[in-house]
Design a protein around this nucleic acid. Structure first.
Lengths: 110, 110
DNA sequence: ATAACATATCATCATTTACTGATATGTTAA
DNA sequence: TTAACATATCAGTAAATGATGATATGTTAT
């Protein structure tokens, strides 16, 4: 057992990826790739319920993937960094070529 | 509700990211960034149990993130594509600058 | 101050997912 | 062919996670 990265590092990296690892959050991140949006706009675009969207936004904020800015009674969200979009683009590219079987992955058995 | 990516696409992309979204699988992927390894070597390096490592490898294989090759009674795994390492590197870079709060993210409440 | 609106929080429930231990499959050597 | 080894599968259990609905907080206008 010759771990280079320690357990905490791996756990944190795992959490970062799990930030991307949900269809609802991905729909939010995708929407924000174009331009910053208010929560209401995000709800509109994604079709998520208000509380669900807000919960996911809280998760994405905690994970550092998006940042929020209060504008009057609206809160506008945007991607925190270009690399968030870069990771999404890389994943899409990978998916196109390599990861066709992904829809499986129902854990071990299927 | 003006989704650009459809539900299936988002679900698949989510699954891809969840492939990366676990500390045990990340320890495997990290190990494979250096060089291809047999299952036994992966067990040794990561400290995972044999069955657990094998299950995770099955998951990573299904997700297209690694490929397996039988060599005698050994099975050697390697990353399926350079972009797998690229995504890991991008995530590390992002984590270093932006995502310090990630260790939170205990879902909504904390 | 009150009403209306925008967003956040929280408890609950259902589902997903990780780990373990036992066992099965497959491969090589004696 | 039998034993030893390498890996895979699978059932069972515990924990993590997502969606919902109700409610709370915060902001602006009247």
């Amino acid at each position: 057992m010759l771990l280079t990265a320690n357990k905490t590092d791996l756990a944190i990296k795992g959490k970062l990826f799990r930030g991307f690892g949900d269809a609802s959050r991905l729909s939010i991140l995708d929407a924000l790739r174009d331009k910053p949006l208010t929560v209401g706009e995000i709800v509109e675009v994604t079709g998520l319920s208000q509380s669900n969207a807000s919960n996911h936004l809280g998760c994405l904020r905690d994970c550092g993937l998006v940042v929020a800015e209060q504008n009057g009674r609206f809160v506008t969200y945007q991607l925190s960094d270009d690399r968030v979009g870069d990771i999404l683009a890389l994943a899409e590219s990978l998916l196109a070529d390599v990861a066709r079987g992904v829809y499986e992955c129902t854990r071990y058995n299927q």
